[in-house]
Design a binder for these strands. Structure first.
Lengths: 224, 224
DNA sequence: GTCTATACCACGATAGAC
DNA sequence: GTCTATCGTGGTATAGAC
């Protein structure tokens, strides 16, 4: 029954990850020192470098732990949406909901540290520091390909290139919403206006779907 | 004719600003040390703290130097657009062009360091570290108010609150485009697709205008 | 293999001499 | 205004305990 031989090692990595995620979300990456993390996790400073190699690698590990389930959920929802509807493809709105919802949902997820974590996710999506970019690209590539194919079927008049641009814009709208929720106050003249996740998704879907459906831009459409 | 008594001090501040902007754009804020900046500018390390007070204050100064002309240009273009057209207000597309163009234009501006600077601007818009947020808010408030009023006239059916959300989304699309230009490659499967500024503005305007024109979201419109 | 103690160097900031 | 000296803190590398 005594499992200390394995608890000792497994728990150390996870305790570091948990403490790091919490502190990163609260203070940001650079403001959080390894000594603060290891102090919080009750391990030695050097444990981070032993288990992860560097602070950057620890950041990657923290992000990857949340990224993978989120992207899996996106693919699962899209699969569920498309199943057995070859001649009746899902609407743009349905597709976008599959894309936005898993990301925005993490906001209000009470379990674990994902609530606040969504902030640092949004930041990192927009400011990938060299090595972090690789992580996002590798984790996101398959998701991007699937959703681009699904959307392309729903917006057949758009060139592949302009579709890429519009997905780029819509991802920016999403990332900005996730990372900069308070920014709305700036536009709203001080009145708080944050809604629950479902309303947030609905607003974002409405905006992005209309943007995707816009007629092709003159001079771009022909350049496929 | 000897101006060394003034050249000595004025040039120091500017040399620091120029060197800092260049290095910040290349490596990011945290990866750039004050020693690197002052070495590049051929001044003493302590000169930064003397002239600016802290590294954070230097970052603010670098950003403010570019932010102010950009926002002024936005307001100038909008004024020019609205002049003497009280009964024929500018279209959404015209308004958005006034908003996006000055920002995206900095990309290709050959003069000074604004070319690469746009990257750190995009980053900072999305990840404002406490003190930086204040700078953006104060610099951006008047711009946001003017453009919100102009857009509100063109989309009268939208509640003020949903208009705020949609401006939030459109700003996210812009910021993401500025800071994460390479991200398109991810969506485009490796094919480079960057266009010149005018085409970029056209694409962004097309997307955002359609998003702004979308019918109000059910359940939100009534909550003004 | 895991983990700790500790030393190392670069960083941002400050005080005080000039 | 500018410089040197110095402080506290940061990330990291290593040696060795278990």
């Amino acid at each position: 029954m005594n499992r200390e031989w394995v608890v000792g090692t497994v728990e150390t990595k996870d305790r570091i990850l948990d403490a790091a995620e919490r502190l990163f979300a609260e203070q940001g990456f650079d403001a959080t020192s390894l000594r603060a993390i290891t102090g919080e996790a009750s391990v030695n400073v050097a444990a981070v470098n032993y288990h992860f190699g560097s602070k950057d690698a620890l950041i990657e590990a923290v992000l990857a732990r949340r990224l993978e389930p989120m992207n899996s959920e996106r693919l699962r929802l899209l699969d569920e949406c498309e199943r057995g509807r070859d001649d009746d493809p899902p609407s743009i709105e349905e597709i976008l909901r599959c894309f936005f919802e898993p990301a925005l949902r993490m906001h209000s997820d009470p379990d674990s540290g994902s609530a606040r974590f969504i902030q640092i996710f949004g930041r990192t999506f927009t400011e990938p520091g060299d090595r972090l970019r690789e992580l996002f690209v590798s984790q996101f590539r398959v998701v991007a390909r699937r959703f681009k194919a699904a959307l392309g079927r729903s917006v057949p008049d758009l060139s592949k290139q302009e579709l890429s641009w519009r997905m780029h814009f819509m991802i920016g709208a999403m990332a900005h919403t996730m990372s900069n929720a308070e920014g709305l106050r700036l536009l709203d003249e001080g009145r708080p206006s944050r809604k629950d996740v479902d309303e947030e998704v609905a607003l974002l879907v409405r905006f992005a779907a209309a943007g995707l459906r816009a007629p092709a831009t003159a001079g771009i459409a022909g350049r496929v």
